[in-house]
């Protein structure tokens, strides 16, 4: 005897998704009037910078250090990767300042706030492992300075910053995967609850801008 459709986990997941995140919320073409402010631009600017980081990172991974240390186009791609990270962090921190001062965790958005905060911490770890896998004297210096710090707090045997293989895999595989998933969940939560209104918003501000 087959299980009734409404008890299947796939059916429960489908109906939950349709109830919480219908396609109109997932891909909206209108936003409330208050979103027409430059301070709301920095979240998507962070995602754009992340896109450039991933694209340039894929090129660096395929071509390798012998290419990006010696050729002009390799140096250029390496710089694109570095400077897009600088812009990613600058935009992310301005986004954080904006969201902090508008108390963006209001309206049942606490999980959106938390995923953003965790994504920030994971981004720092990803950038740090990036500095360690440059395969130059700079990365050697940073890793030998950092190992003493990690050893002093007792995690050096587990997180070995002088182990290039471990740092490279963390930088190009594990941490980007975690960051990608966190970013996706963060954006889906923003779409589900909508962009947080200003603290002093009146009902007229909340109307969708056509």
């Amino acid at each position: 005897m087959s299980t009734p459709t409404h008890e299947m986990w796939t059916a429960r997941l489908r109906s939950s998704w349709q109830r919480n995140l219908p396609i109109e919320k997932l891909l909206p073409d209108d936003q409330p009037a208050y979103v027409a402010s430059w301070i709301y631009v920095f979240g998507v600017a962070t995602i754009a910078a992340l896109g450039v980081i991933i694209a340039s990172g894929i090129v660096l991974a395929f071509q390798g250090p012998a290419w990006y240390h010696t050729s002009d186009i390799g140096n250029f791609t390496n710089s694109i990767h570095f400077w897009s990270v600088q812009m990613f962090f600058a935009f992310m921190v301005i986004h954080l300042w904006g969201k902090f001062w508008m108390a963006a965790w209001r309206g049942n958005r606490v999980r959106t706030w938390i995923t953003g905060a965790v994504a920030f911490v994971v981004s720092i770890a990803t950038a740090f492992t990036g500095y360690l896998v440059q395969t130059n004297f700079d990365s050697q210096w940073i890793s030998f300075e950092a190992k003493d710090g990690f050893n002093s707090v007792g995690v050096g045997a587990w997180f070995t910053v002088t182990n290039l293989g471990q740092m490279l895999l963390l930088h190009v595989a594990f941490l980007p995967l975690i960051l990608g998933v966190l970013t996706l969940v963060h954006v889906l939560m923003v779409r589900r609850r909508g962009v947080v209104p200003p603290i002093d918003a009146v009902p007229a501000n909340l109307e969708v801008r056509k």
Binding site: S37, W38, I39, V41, F42, A90, V93, I94, W97, G98
Partner: peptide
Amino acid sequence: IMLALFAAAI
């Protein structure tokens, strides 16, 4: 620069 961008955005 980040502080200036933040102020400009507002």
